[in-house]
Structure formats: structure tokens, C-alpha cells
């Protein structure tokens, strides 16, 4: 290593704390991203993406961008990812992608393209002239003040346009989510009539274990004639049929001292 190389290395050195942060969180971010790519369940992908975003937020913090780091957590991870999760629930949380690829050659082509692109980027970046001026001076009045200075002076037009964009996006979402009412609004009276006409159980179902000794979720409720009501248990538990999961209720009625007379 030559002297100029040493100088160069010294000039661009970031400091050990940051290095540790990077080398700890960087691989975690990469692994989480790979998890986003490879998870079978969409919910897992969403949560791993949230993990990636959190790592990135810390990296922003490490790079003297506290405002952005917090905004990343609050807006991106907190709002956007949660929005993703809500929509996942709407769409069907247990809908899983089959792993069989329907398009011929898509996997290989995608792999080649991604590796190629990444390789090209990296090799292109290798020639870059590296400086490390640091943000000490820019953050002299504080990061938020510095950002505000720029946003409301040089980038004010972009700011205004972006705010218009946000309003438009909100309206667009409303328009898209709107469902035109084609038939009359169903009144409470109509609902009630429907419920009774159907012949089904009109009242809310008993919760599990209500008239039994236990009120665990796996103990069925008792009907007035003393038989257990399967209908009061969660379908999931019945479906699982784990032995011992359903505690049979006792048939006795619990009597207390101040009962009788």
C-alpha cells in the first residue's frame, strides 16, 4: 500500500463505530431482503421488509441523518408497511404463492439480469472518486434546520408539487376504494327480518366455556340441556383436533352457599 493509498484510506475513513454498525446491520438487511424474496407467505415478506427498513433507519442515523432515520421508522416502517399488512389481511393472508414458475426461463433470466446489473453497478462504482466530507458543517444548526433550509428555499417548488401529489393520491385512493351502492341500503329492520327468516340461530352464539366450569377457549359451552355446544368453539381448534385440547365440561351445576332457601 502506497502513501497516497494510505492517505486516501485515511481521508475516507469513517470511524470504527460506524464500521461496526454497518457490518452488523448490513448483512442483516441483506438477509432480510433475501427473505422478502424467498418467503412463501406474504406476511413473512412484509415483516422481513419491515426489518430491512429498520436496519436502514439505523444506518441513516449513523450517517448523520437523524431526521430521515426517524421519518423512516415512523412513516415508512410504521405507516407504509402497516398499510401493506392491512391490505394483506384484506386480500387473504393465507394465500401462498406456489413455488412453480409458470413462465419458462424467467428464473434464470431474472437471476442473470439481476446479477449482471448488480455486477455492472458495482464495477461502475469501483471507479468512483470517493470523498468523505461529513455533515458536521451542514448540520451545524441541527439536521432539521438544515433540511428545512433546503426544502423551503431551493426545493420549495418540488415541495409544493409533492404536496399536491399527496392530496391527489389520497383522493385517488378514495375513488378507487369507493363502491357504488347498487341496491338500497339495508336497514336494521331488514337485517333483523333476514336473521330470523333464515332459520338459523338468531342470537349471538355463546362464547366458549360460558356455562361450564371453565371459560377457557378450548372448553365448549353447555346448552340448556347440559350437552356441550360444539358451535361455541373456534373452528380452528376443532379442525386441529389436538388431543387433549378440548377439555370436556363437567355436567354439574356449581352450587354456592348462598344459593337455595
Amino acid at each position: 500500500m502506497t502513501t497516497s493509498g494510505q492517505l486516501l484510506a485515511a481521508a475516507t475513513d469513517t470511524g470504527t463505530g460506524e464500521a461496526v454498525t454497518f457490518w452488523l446491520l448490513g448483512p442483516i438487511a441483506v438477509l432480510a431482503a433475501l427473505g422478502v424474496l424467498f418467503s412463501k407467505k406474504a406476511v413473512h415478506s412484509a415483516l422481513l421488509l419491515a426489518a430491512t427498513m429498520l436496519c436502514l433507519a439505523v444506518l441513516y442515523l449513523a450517517q448523520d441523518a437523524p431526521f430521515l432515520g426517524v421519518v423512516q421508522v415512523v412513516v415508512y416502517t410504521g405507516a407504509v408497511m402497516m398499510l401493506f399488512l392491512f391490505v394483506l389481511m384484506l386480500v387473504g393472508v393465507d394465500s401462498a404463492d406456489s413455488l412453480v414458475e409458470t413462465l419458462r426461463g424467467q428464473r434464470i433470466a431474472a437471476l442473470v439480469a439481476a446479477v449482471g446489473f448488480g455486477g455492472l453497478l458495482v464495477s461502475g462504482l469501483g471507479d468512483a472518486v470517493v470523498t468523505n466530507k461529513g455533515l458536521k458543517q451542514a448540520n451545524a444548526d441541527g439536521n432539521v434546520v438544515g433540511l428545512a433550509d433546503l426544502i423551503f428555499s431551493r426545493y420549495v417548488f418540488a415541495f409544493e408539487v409533492t404536496s399536491a401529489l399527496l392530496i391527489t393520491a389520497a383522493m385517488g385512493a378514495m375513488v378507487l376504494a369507493h363502491r357504488e351502492r347498487h341496491e338500497e341500503k339495508v336497514t336494521q329492520r331488514d337485517l333483523s327480518i333476514q336473521r330470523f327468516r333464515g332459520g338459523q340461530h338468531p342470537a349471538p352464539l355463546p362464547g366458549p366455556g360460558v356455562y361450564a366450569r371453565h371459560n377457557a377457549v378450548d372448553t365448549p359451552a353447555l346448552l340448556p340441556d347440559g350437552s356441550p355446544a360444539e358451535v361455541s368453539l373456534s373452528r380452528v381448534l376443532i379442525a386441529l383436533r389436538v388431543p387433549g385440547a378440548i377439555t370436556p365440561p363437567t355436567g354439574e351445576v356449581v352450587r354456592t352457599e348462598d344459593d337455595g332457601a
Binding site: 413462465l103 424467467q106 439480469a113 449482471g116 446489473f117 455492472l120 461502475g124
Partner: peptide, 22 residues
Amino acid sequence: GFVRSYALSMFAGAALVVGAML
């Protein structure tokens, strides 16, 4: 007709552009 194959061609094109610039 598949969006993904179109996305693939776009991505490959982008890779080519980067390669050409390099």
C-alpha cells in the same frame, strides 16, 4: 402478456444501458 416478462425486458434494457455507459 405477462407483466413480469415485460419487467424482465425493461430490467435487461436498463442493465444494457448501464453497461454501455461503463
